[in-house]
Design a protein around this nucleic acid. Structure first.
Length: 488
RNA sequence: CGGGAUGUGGCGCAGUCCGGUAGCGCACACGGCUGGGGGCCGUGUGGUCGCAGGUUCAAAUCCUGUCAUCCCGACCA
């Protein structure tokens, strides 16, 4: 098969592409900028989706579904919002095809032009707030806590599998509240859910913070973010939660009567994470042998490989282990494929990121043991058959923790402080990563720093210590350091 | 959208400069030998050379256009 993966040190981008393709996560498609998510990649997404969905439901949210098409006029209602997306919208202009009168194929029927063009949703704020106007009349209708799992389209110039595609899958939550405080609390609650999911499920450490004016979502009052650091020391925005104030309530005239019979505008939030998380997952843990997956999200947690091939004795033990795994809720498969040899299978499952591999051969059975190999460290050990599943149960937890600790250590080693622009540039050009530095709080300075260094302010961390200092560019006073990095 | 590179069986590539009717490795099929980290030998299947025009007796090769992918930049989740 000779499926070689480019080394990270050689060409990081190519390494990433190789992992995506050779681990069977996704392929490019016939449509520019769009990808085919393959079964292995989709199974991963399903696990992520299911867990997030549980977390949303546990905090009182419900799912709904809104149309993929948005009337063009809706996007004109909130000026700032539309400005953020206008450049990357797909537009539907016609609703019928016809046979080409000149010969082969089909052409757009010019007589089927739409009265009003439809925009393929880049995000659903507008159509949802148009709908909320009908749903909300009284304070008794609030809060309204709705999420949807959907695809969206943003016509990107430059795409990369999972990280930035023209069409992607995501969830978008849209909530309406009676008070500002409640909406702000909702925004932060979701940020906490995202952070918890990233750290406890993806084993990907994140920094929670608030975006600068320049970096925040079009139409939001505040954008909160979770920022992760990839293995090439570039930052990845992994999820955002927006406090929208009353901007959409005003634009779509969504009001309610409060307890005092007074008509008030509602307060809003929106928040989302996307298939981009899969890109983050890959770049946080994987190595030169392929994908590395955290056990909690891995489609298959354990694979049993018979050595050198299935036999009655081996099968019996394997089936027993499978059954015990199933009882314990461990996802386990047994590869009985006769056409592939063990060495091939080892390489293949390493490529696909299966956290634990069990090898069972005649020699093991004689000693009443199996060989257990872990994907994260490549360590192998022999364990008595009877205790194998218990051992694996503990091992999966250990792998999950190890991946998180390893990633955390990497982030800590790649988080620096800079007190001058020279030092700042020096760090970015050598080790990269997050750089904590003082900033005078203006967009102008932020843009100048970006121009000179290609680094942007990823966020102002929420758990930030106050520290007096001076801006590394202008020397003006600053009350705290902010987090800079070059990013995806 | 700017700059650079690349499109040749499923995958990776050679052939292109200097035009003569397509080749290698892997994969795949069949047979045999094997068997604890991507096996070996043999026999085979599979390609209108990204697409569309043009030049020519003749085009993978030369010319024009176009599409796609990758890398770098601007923009964004």
């Amino acid at each position: 098969m000779a499926k070689e993966i480019t080394n990270r040190s050689e060409d990081y981008s190519q390494w990433y592409n190789d992992i995506v393709k050779k681990a069977g996560l996704a392929d490019n498609s016939a449509v520019r900028g769009c990808m085919v998510i393959k079964p292995h990649g989709f199974a991963l997404w399903e696990n992520m989706r299911d867990q997030l969905d549980r977390m949303f439901k546990d905090t009182g949210h419900v799912n709904a579904y809104f149309p993929i098409f948005i009337p063009k006029s809706f996007l004109s209602k909130e000026a700032e919002h539309v400005e953020g997306f206008a450049k990357e919208c797909a537009v539907v202009t016609h609703h019928r095809l016809m046979n080409d009168p000149d010969g082969k194929g089909v052409v757009v029927d010019p007589s089927a032009k739409l009265e009003e063009e439809l925009i393929v949703r880049p995000t659903s704020e507008t159509i949802i707030w148009h709908t909320y106007r009908d749903w909300i009349n009284s304070y008794r209708d609030l809060p309204l806590l709705v999420n949807q799992w959907a695809n969206v389209v943003r016509w990107e110039m430059r795409t990369r599998l999972f990280l930035r595609t023209a069409e992607f899958l995501w969830q978008e939550g849209h909530t309406a509240h009676a008070t500002k405080q409640e909406a702000v609390e909702e925004t932060l609650q979701i940020l906490d859910i995202y952070a918890k999911f990233a750290e406890e499920w993806m084993a990907m450490p994140v920094v929670k913070g608030v975006k600068t004016v320049n970096e925040r979502f079009a139409g939001a009052e505040d954008t909160y973010t979770i920022e992760a650091l990839m293995q090439d020391a570039k930052a990845l925005q992994a999820g955002t939660s927006h406090f929208l104030g009353q901007n959409f309530a005003k634009a779509f005239d969504v009001t309610f009567l409060d307890e005092n019979q007074k008509r008030e505008l509602v307060w809003a939030t929106s928040w989302g994470v996307s298939t981009r998380l899969i890109g983050g997952l890959i770049m946080t843990h994987s190595d030169d042998d392929g994908l590395v997956l955290p056990p909690k999200l891995a489609p298959q947690q354990v694979v049993i490989v018979p050595i050198p091939k299935p036999s009655e004795e081996v099968d019996e033990v394997a089936e027993k282990i499978m059954a015990t795994c199933k009882e314990k809720g461990i996802r386990c498969i047994f590869d009985k494929d006769l056409k592939k040899r063990p060495g091939f299978k080892f390489a293949e499952y390493e490529m696909r990121g299966v956290p634990v591999r069990i090898g069972i051969g005649k020699r093991d059975l004689e000693k009443n043991q199996v060989e257990i190999a872990r994907r994260d460290t490549k360590e192998k050990t022999f364990v008595p058959i009877d205790g194998a599943v218990d051992y694996i149960e503990g091992l999966l937890v250990e792998i999950q923790n190890n991946l998180f600790q390893k990633a955390l250590k990497f982030r800590e080693e790649h988080t620096s402080s800079a007190d001058s622009l020279e030092e700042f540039k020096e760090i970015l050009d050598t080790k990269g990563g997050f750089v904590k530095a003082h900033w005078d709080g203006t967009t102008e300075t932020e843009l100048k720093i970006k121009e000179q260094t290609k680094a942007t302010i990823r966020c102002i961390p929420l758990e930030n210590e106050k520290e007096e200092g001076v801006c590394i560019l202008t020397g003006k006073p600053s009350a705290q350091r902010v987090l800079f990095a070059r990013s995806y």
